[in-house]
Design a binder for these strands. Structure first.
Ligand SMILES: [Zn+2]
Ligand SMILES: [Zn+2]
Ligand SMILES: [Zn+2]
Ligand SMILES: [Zn+2]
Lengths: 425, 425
DNA sequence: CAAAAAGGTCACAAGGTCAC
DNA sequence: GTGACCTTGTGACCTTTTTG
């Protein structure tokens, strides 16, 4: 089964492996253009021209093809969202390699059978429980730090963290797809989008795991510190901290994070997004000040279920009480955001994390585009209700297209979502 | 960021939801494209680009109206009767998507070849047998619960139930049609369907009013007549007539109707439906005998809450005791039907009459498609439990889509239902 | 011819296998 | 338990046939 005997003629069975590999590769350089236009011109005919054209085009620049282009590592530009290896396609709702595909199937079915046998009615949402009791239901050793980096080399060392990452990137046994892709999925430049998206995903997953070490216990706060809790206590009109955790399900819990810690952990991602979104001329001077606009922080906490506290030990005058960030006027917006988040979590199971990220990006981007001239302002944006409506309409479009994705076999929505992100580049 | 300015126009800016539709079929019909291509020439700028693009995209999606996503998903308002996807036309006698079309062809031919090889002379009609021994003749794993819901997501998970649903909606390799449709029929499609439905509604309403004059009081029956009560007395295992009215709420009351009267009132509607459903060649010779198959009558009485009594004055030998209609073997089916009726009345309030009509039509249709060669038989069909399950599953799908209809604005379900009727014209 | 459906093709993923 | 490779079902798109 020699992989590279590139004679134009006898390619009866090799064509799938070969041309998928270089089709995705060919998009980078300009060599793909004449072939496609030629195919278009000759499209008027109805004989077998198309097939031969495709073969010719694929063979035209194949010879530079890397030797690692195996039949099962087709998408050399698409990395596995779990381990970063070359992915072999869309498996269970995520671009993964063959190894992670099989890993997820094995352990998902093992967990499902274990859950069904010990059918405890107290189990909460399926994904969360399956993710949480992974070590309990399977016979894998329990991970202690629970935030192992999953790479190509380390993916076999901690199955629990690997499985949790599979869940985090949205894999699910019911998210299977079948059959050939639609033509948009083959468009070459969604590869870049996938990379971008995977990058953002990685940032967020790591961010959330890192933040877990910095959480503050609610009971450790004194009254003065409680008065500095920014969200969601005041927004939700829960003056006492006792009933915070009962507020909004999994979204709003009593994970309290110091503002300084949050800024430190979020800043890398923040500056990356700013670099993506803002024009280079007004790009954030990254090293000047490691501060993040307060409304960005608030939005982040709202979306991802943290409670933000202004660091009491911070002696700077940046206390929220003295700031010009008017919480009351933004109350409506924040409530709207919370409403959207609830809707997300009802409709999407493990996929909610991705939606949240997209939502957050949308809000960030909109804030930048709204007030791009005030980029240096510490309080970045104060959008009005019309603009909130714009965000929500956009976001609802995204929701609908995600629903379409969930019920369709094709990953078209992901492509469109990523295309949407790709505009910022 | 320069990914967009590709010269082959149509890909440039409609990269969100809209291009899911047109990117695949860029060259199909050039009529709708110019508007979009003209719009995004100024799109190179970056400020506010996201917002305007999103708005454009969302608006442009509606303005093209029924411009469909793909050439092969033409009928966006017509769903696949099997899986609910967008259908691509009439395939093998049912509106199906491309996937279900091919699925049915593959498995039908596989089953037929398997049947021909093991030519068992006991096989009755082709469709019924192929439905029953699907798992036996093909190498697909046998389904255990045999009533899987076939949706877009689940259609690939249980081939057996999918195939049985294909049979249930009336698909058949011998039901092929060719050639273009007449423009008159195409233009009048929806109108005719709506008219047809309204006509059926009128028929049913008048029927119920007319029957009210012919009702027999339960107390007026003597013991011999009571023994001729067909349903639901025997079915519900209520040997005495005293507790009939307490049976099933409003559905089963003590409205007792003579069989002759029921036939007289129902025959007009019955022959209309038969003319719709049966091919014209074997259409019922309407004037020969004004009789309706007993199981059709029973089903009608079950659904609409009548008690059927064989006319004691009728001296013909059509007594149920002498007939070959085995009530005990049909007991399960009738109970199932009653269960469905209860469910209908719980879920739908004033809407129940429409649902009941649809259900009745479905059962009638299924009976005809199952045993079309026995159309002249007085006892039309004797469906087995599998086929009852098929009917119920189909009906549950219809219920769900009716729920969608109730909360959505589009009349998609009505259209698809009426298309189902319209295909027999 | 155009339109519509039947039939064909082959990319794609799910699941299995078998060395390790 | 892991993962490279394979088999098989599936489906988007394409081609051919049939009919108005
Ligand atoms: Zn991987
Ligand atoms: Zn770990
Ligand atoms: Zn279908
Ligand atoms: Zn099944």
């Amino acid at each position: 089964m020699g992989a590279q005997p590139h004679l134009p003629g006898p390619h009866s069975h090799m064509n799938e492996a070969a041309n998928v590999c270089e089709a995705s590769k060919g998009g980078k350089r300009a060599g793909v253009k004449p072939s496609s236009s030629a195919a278009h011109s000759s499209q008027v005919h109805k004989s077998k021209r198309l097939k031969s054209d495709l073969l010719e085009a694929s063979l035209g620049y194949e010879q530079t093809g890397p030797a690692n282009c195996s039949k099962y590592k087709r998408y050399d530009e698409f990395k596995c969202w779990v381990c970063g290896d070359q992915s072999s396609g869309n498996h269970y709702g995520a671009l993964t390699c063959e190894a992670c595909k099989l890993f997820f199937r094995r352990h998902s079915s093992a967990i499902m059978s274990a859950n069904s046998s010990s059918s405890s009615p107290t189990s909460s949402s399926s994904s969360a429980s399956s993710s949480s009791n992974f070590a309990a239901t399977s016979n894998i050793s329990h991970c202690i730090q629970r935030n192992c980096q999953i790479t190509l080399q380390t993916r076999s060392s901690c199955p629990e963290c690997r499985y949790r990452k599979c869940i985090a990137v949205g894999m699910g046994l019911n998210r299977t797809t079948f059959g050939r892709h639609t033509s948009i999925q083959k468009s070459k430049y969604n590869a870049k989008c996938n990379d971008l998206f995977a990058e953002i995903m990685k940032l967020f997953v790591g961010l959330k795991e890192n933040l877990a070490n910095k959480l503050i216990n609610l009971n450790d706060l004194n009254l003065f510190q409680l008065s500095n809790l920014v969200i969601p206590v005041k927004v939700l009109a829960n003056p006492a901290g006792s009933s915070i955790s009962s507020g909004h399900g999994s979204s709003v819990n009593n994970m309290i994070v110091n503002r300084h810690d949050l800024e430190a952990h979020l800043f890398r991602f923040y500056s990356d997004v700013v670099d993506l979104m803002a024009p280079p001329k007004q790009s954030l001077s990254s090293e000047r000040v490691r501060k993040i606009p307060i409304n960005i922080l608030i939005t982040f906490c709202l979306i991802f279920g943290y409670n933000l506290i202004n660091d009491p030990s911070d002696s700077s005058a940046k206390s929220l009480a003295k700031s010009n960030f008017n919480l009351s006027t933004n109350n409506f917006q924040l409530k709207q955001i919370l409403k959207q988040i609830k809707q997300i979590e009802q409709q999407f199971d493990t996929f909610a994390i991705r939606i949240k990220i997209i939502y957050f990006l949308l809000i960030m981007y909109t804030s930048f585009s709204m007030c791009s001239d005030q980029l240096d302002d510490y309080f970045l944006f104060a959008i009005n209700n019309d603009e909130v409506n714009d965000i929500q309409r956009t976001f609802l479009d995204l929701l609908n297209s995600e629903l379409d994705f969930q019920k369709n076999t094709v990953a078209s929505t992901r492509v469109s979502l990523l295309l949407k992100l790709d505009q910022f580049i």
